[in-house]
Amino acid sequence: MENLILTKKKVLQINEDTFILIFEEDPDFSPGQFVMMETPALVRKPFILGRWMGKTAISVKIRGKGTKYLVFEATQIRCHLPLGNPFVPPNERGMAIVSTASITMASMLNEIYGVEVLVGSRTPLVMKTPFETVVGDNAFEERIKKLDYEWYLISGSIEMEKKAWNILKKRKTEIFLALEEYMGCGIGACKSCAIQTKYGIKHVCTDGPIFRGDELCW
């Protein structure tokens, strides 16, 4: 874990509101881990780490001033990483179901473990990706219903995750979910990113960010 500066090398637009930021530096991290990035706001923001075109990258969905700053203004971004726990797939017979905001993490899983990837997007993609993509809520739900894998990792907005979870939970499969919660420190000190689980309070930064679906109170 270190506090460093990442230099933006390239920005790629994926869809209407989400961008891939590719960095020059190559810090050490594993799929599933995240970075806290400094913006003009008072609190650093968490982004799940990944790789794109062989380089360290994150996906950023524009949500407000901080994300606009990262995508359109920042050149060198102060941050600390790697944070959270790596995700190691149980086997090769699983799929990562991700929003465009998690596409770089999925790409890294694909690169290292050969995990298949399904991308869900509300708006059409404006760039080519190597992954199957479905556009719109209905198409996403219909595609999820047809999937047949031994395990799934779902990473996207809470609405998207719940849609996929509600379909897949009825099957005898392992489901993992990447969670988001407002974070102060990202390192386990402040206890702000608490979530309620069946086993009590857990923290997204130190217990996650990826959790087993069957421990969540969903």
Partner: peptide, 20 residues
Amino acid sequence: KSGNPPPRMRAGEFYILNSI
């Protein structure tokens, strides 16, 4: 103490609010 139920933190332009 297991602390307060989430959400536990939000921020505005000039403040951070916590409910740990």
